[in-house]
């Protein structure tokens, strides 16, 4: 079930501060839980061209409070389904943070990287160490380390595997 997350590498898609979950996936498209249909509208209200141009492995880079607003888990689901491999931000809103951890979408809090990386740069990330490389500029950054509890949760592959293990232990 759990597999160590390999190196992430892709194009950086740069966004600003306070990107809310309505911008990530507008409510008008939330009358479905189908990841493929959600992906068609991912980031639609922040950049209408995003869904058509994003490629598997790409990295979203954003400012402060990424994922604020609605708790909708279809926001990280839409990002994952559209191929986004990870998100680097100055900071994350807390429900989005939980959802990303629970789903296994790699996220990295790193103000220096989130500020310096430019749209279109090629970015590589070592998830285990939190080292972020901007391959376009040659700069390297270190993301905030995760607390031990969250590392364990991520090592299990997210909340689903954690719950399954707990349920098995109860039997």
């Amino acid at each position: 079930m759990a597999k160590p997350l390999g190196r992430l590498q892709g194009r950086a898609w740069k966004f600003g501060d306070h990107i809310d979950t309505d911008a990530i996936i507008p409510a008008r498209h939330c009358n479905t839980a189908d990841p493929a249909r959600l992906a068609e509208h991912c980031m639609e209200d922040a950049d209408p061209s995003f869904a058509g141009r994003v490629a598997p492995g790409d990295i979203v880079v954003a400012g402060i409070n990424f994922g604020c607003g609605s708790s909708r888990e279809v926001a990280p689901i839409a990002l994952q389904a559209s191929g986004v491999a990870g998100v680097v931000a100055v900071s994350f809103a807390r429900i989005f943070f939980r959802n990303a951890i629970n789903l296994g979408l790699p996220i990295f809090e790193c103000p220096a990287a989130a500020t310096a990386i430019a749209d279109g740069d090629t970015v590589a990330i070592e998830p285990a160490s939190g080292v972020i490389h901007d391959l376009t500029t040659g700069a390297t950054y270190q993301a905030e380390p995760f607390p031990e509890f969250l590392l364990q949760l991520m090592a299990l592959g997210g909340l689903h595997s954690y719950v399954q293990a707990r349920l098995a232990a109860h039997e």
Partner: peptide
């Protein structure tokens, strides 16, 4: 406190949630 759907599913099964 607001949580995600996977959190809700976990809480439905375990009667618990993880919190910082």
């Amino acid at each position: 406190t607001g949580v995600g759907s996977t959190d809700a599913a976990a809480a439905m099964a375990l009667g618990e949630i993880w919190l910082k």
